[in-house]
Design a protein around this nucleic acid. Sequence first.
DNA 1: CGATTTCTTGAAGCGGTTCAAAGTTGGTGG
DNA 2: CCACCAACTTTGAACCGCTTCAAGAAATCG
Lengths: 226, 226
Amino acid sequence: MDTTLRTERPQSAATGPIAGSRAATLAELFALRGTPCSFARNKTIASEESPIERVYRIERGFVRCCSYTEDGLRQIFDFAGPGDLLGFPDLETWHFTAEAIGPVAARYLKPDTLDAVLIAEPRIAKALRRHCVQQFARRERHLVWLSYLQSDDRLQAFLEAFARLGETQDGFVELPMTRKDLGDHLGMTLETVSRCFGSLKRCGRIAMEGACRYRLGAERSEASAA
Amino acid sequence: MDTTLRTERPQSAATGPIAGSRAATLAELFALRGTPCSFARNKTIASEESPIERVYRIERGFVRCCSYTEDGLRQIFDFAGPGDLLGFPDLETWHFTAEAIGPVAARYLKPDTLDAVLIAEPRIAKALRRHCVQQFARRERHLVWLSYLQSDDRLQAFLEAFARLGETQDGFVELPMTRKDLGDHLGMTLETVSRCFGSLKRCGRIAMEGACRYRLGAERSEASAA
DNA sequence: CGATTTCTTGAAGCGGTTCAAAGTTGGTGG
DNA sequence: CCACCAACTTTGAACCGCTTCAAGAAATCG
């Protein structure tokens, strides 16, 4: 029900269980045995239907998890960020396409490696099951948004959920994705997304700084214009 | 990507691996060690947010997996049928409500029991992970329906998917749920669902027998009325 | 600096909702 | 067996929110 499906963020390096060669959490496992890699803006990290040869954990940047219909429409299921996992060791093929929104840094493991760890280390196996089912719950929340919220509230629900993982020091959150991306995520056109930003601003439900930085709640710095 | 997330249906009882006390599949495990139980029409099997004390496998009947918003609206995520699992051993609480649409027969295991099996029997652990991730893919398919299909096609997509698990000898499929249930699943009102049945019938995309039995494709028995 | 991409805003049209009423089905009891 | 009732389904007409198409503004990049 909550959005904290990211595995723990701050992982204070070499102290603690990492000292031994046996990792106890997914974060440790990738830090210890993962191979670093990176992707440029708009590069495809994995394609729907292609075999899963690597399971990634994102370290920096954001990724679009999406699917294309035969007529070229795109449904974005999720924006994955630092700490998120991409791919499951038990599936043969990717069930979505993953694309780097901006520059992305990640680490990966081979499914075979992960498989072996899952048998040897029940805590990791459990963590992976929980990760999977939490992603699952996230999709269900998304379904509720699409069914029962109108565009304004849909955008606000997204902004509230996203704020929990992108916040900066001054309370503003940076959006890495375009209006089109948001539209493809929220089931509306980019024009409607833009209009919704306008109306949320006008109602004082958010404050904006340029097109890509927002803060929740009524504006505090600027005069509350009617 | 496909809809066969049901675990294998025909489970020819006591022959094969069942003879030993060690089950190799989820179906066997529930057959061997599950406790039978049943629910009357419209009874709640599990409530959102309540602790998961049993993990069910449905044997007969259909179940609504849904969530209620604070203003009483209902989103049905899935209609679970024979062979489907309800609940995950690794979560503390149900992330949806499960209600019997008609009479339901099931078997259940305690999460602790299942947990122990998962450690002892990697094949079952893998099967459970696959089950979870397949349900997951199902939610994603559902998201695509809601975002990009209009009502007619949305209903047809559902009817096609549902046909794979409810078929009867004469090619007709029986719908256990009401128009309201369908509407709450497909993100439309019950009136729109009814109108869509009408238009699919008129276009010859389905044939109906009463309000609750349908067959895909153009009608063969009746004259193809313009 | 111009060129390209992204974002914003406007006006017309359509699909689905809402509200209302009539038709259908199945179950219960006289 | 039929009358009645409740629940469900179908159909109609007016209305509203979002899309579509179009043009202009702002930001980004070589």
